[in-house]
Structure formats: structure tokens, C-alpha cells
Design a protein around this nucleic acid. Structure first.
Lengths: 110, 110
DNA sequence: TTATTATATAAGAATTTGATTATATGTTAT
DNA sequence: ATAACATATAATCAAATTCTTATATAATAA
């Protein structure tokens, strides 16, 4: 019955939040660590981590741990339409320019 | 900031439910009236009406009132990716075959 | 070793969601 | 006119979502 739609619904649930869409739009430019999302999104670090966990469980992002940072990036293979979906989102290169204007990763002292 | 993603998030929220995905899959085959959804989905008539209202407000479906029925159909123009999205959903032609095997619209006495 | 930094998890509160039953509205049939 | 049918809305409730603060874990720096 309707159960066969649950798996797909889980994907769309992970997309059904403006913060997570903003995150995906950022990740369509480059990989980011948790502490870079924080100043851009204006949320607490735990809130950011929780959103990233949701995206990871949905298979839409993957993580790469380096030193004390965890970098997240898009996992295109996670969903056939992901590329089209992120492509349709608003441009956020300004967010990244603003962040880098303060020195690449200077915001990493939360 | 993140507000520019709210409109898109509303679209994905309307997709973030297995019942509504099932409805869209059905509508990719043909238009259906409220009373046809009821036996297929196994939900109350008000629940079905409420889901359809959500999809209508998101611009994903449109309605056509005829006699005492209200027929719903996909509104492809409502979202650029809608066609791709419904195309990726499980096949539900069996649901419709089962319904029609009982006489086209015989289930309309709720 | 001890302090600092980056991240994750847990617990709790406010909001949203998705169902139900009851009821209202409007159309068709008798 | 009255009954039956199709749909929509309102009220209510349980479950899920999304934040916050507090705390745990792990790596680097002093």
C-alpha cells in the first residue's frame, strides 16, 4: 500500500526545511565543516549538527573527518534527483564570500 | 538569509508525506475524485480532503468541480521538477485496476 | 597534563503535522 | 420537499519536528 512510499517520503522530509535546503545550496558550491555553517545560518552548533545528521541519514550528504573538523559534502548518488534539486535552489555564493572575507575559517572558534 | 528558502521548503513539505506521494503517483495516471482516493488509501474522507488541500496550496494539483464531485489532477506548471518527481515514484496502476474492477466509481458511496 | 577547539548527543519546550469524529454546505435523486 | 451523496471545515489529540541548553567525546595546543 502506502508503505512503499515511506522511503521516498523520508528523502523529501529531509528536504522539507529551509535550513537544510540552505545547507544543500551551500554544499553545491564546496564542502563545509560544521563550524562554517554556524555563522552563515545563525543557529546554534547543536542545531547545525542535528540538521547535518538528518541529511546524512537520508543519504544526501557524506562526511570526511580531518583533524578536529568534520567536512560535509553532497552525495549525488544518494538520490537520483538531488543534482536537479540543488540546482534549482537560490544562489548562496554571497554567503560564502562573506565568510571568506573574514578569513577562510576564522569563525571556527565557537 | 534562510528566509529565501522558505517558499521552496513549503513545496518539499507538501511532498514529505507518504500519503501525498501516493496521491501524486495516482494522479500521474489520471485525474481522481476525492471518493476514489478514500478506498485506495484506506483513510477517512476528511483526511483525504486535507491532504489534497495541502497539495493544492502548494500548487502541485488543481481541481475541477463537476456535479457533486471534485476531480483533482496534477498541475505540472506548479513546480519545475514535479514531472521528474512523480516519474520517480512507485507504479500504482494496480491500485487503479483494483478500483475499476469494482466498477469505475462504485466506491463513491461513503 | 591541562586548556582549548570542534563536534555529537541528550533532555526538554514550543510548534507543526496528521489522524479522527462531528458538522456544515451543496448537488443529485426520489 | 426530503433523503442521500460528495466534499470541506472545525475541534481535538498524539506523534513528530526543531529549537535551546547542558554535557560528553575527541583532537590539538600550551
Amino acid at each position: 500500500m502506502t508503505e512503499s512510499f515511506e522511503a521516498t517520503a523520508e528523502i523529501y522530509k529531509s528536504l522539507a526545511d529551509r535550513t537544510r535546503l540552505h545547507m544543500l545550496a551551500l554544499l553545491s558550491n564546496r564542502e563545509l565543516c560544521v563550524c562554517e555553517f554556524v555563522p552563515i545560518l545563525g543557529l546554534s552548533q547543536p542545531a547545525v549538527s542535528q540538521h547535518l545528521r538528518r541529511l546524512k541519514h537520508a543519504g544526501l550528504v557524506k562526511e570526511r573527518k580531518t583533524a578536529r573538523w568534520v567536512f560535509y559534502s553532497l552525495q549525488e548518488s544518494g538520490f537520483p534527483l538531488l543534482q536537479d534539486i540543488v540546482h534549482q535552489l537560490p544562489d548562496v555564493s554571497e554567503d560564502l564570500a562573506r565568510l571568506e572575507a573574514l578569513g577562510q575559517r576564522v569563525q571556527c572558534n565557537l
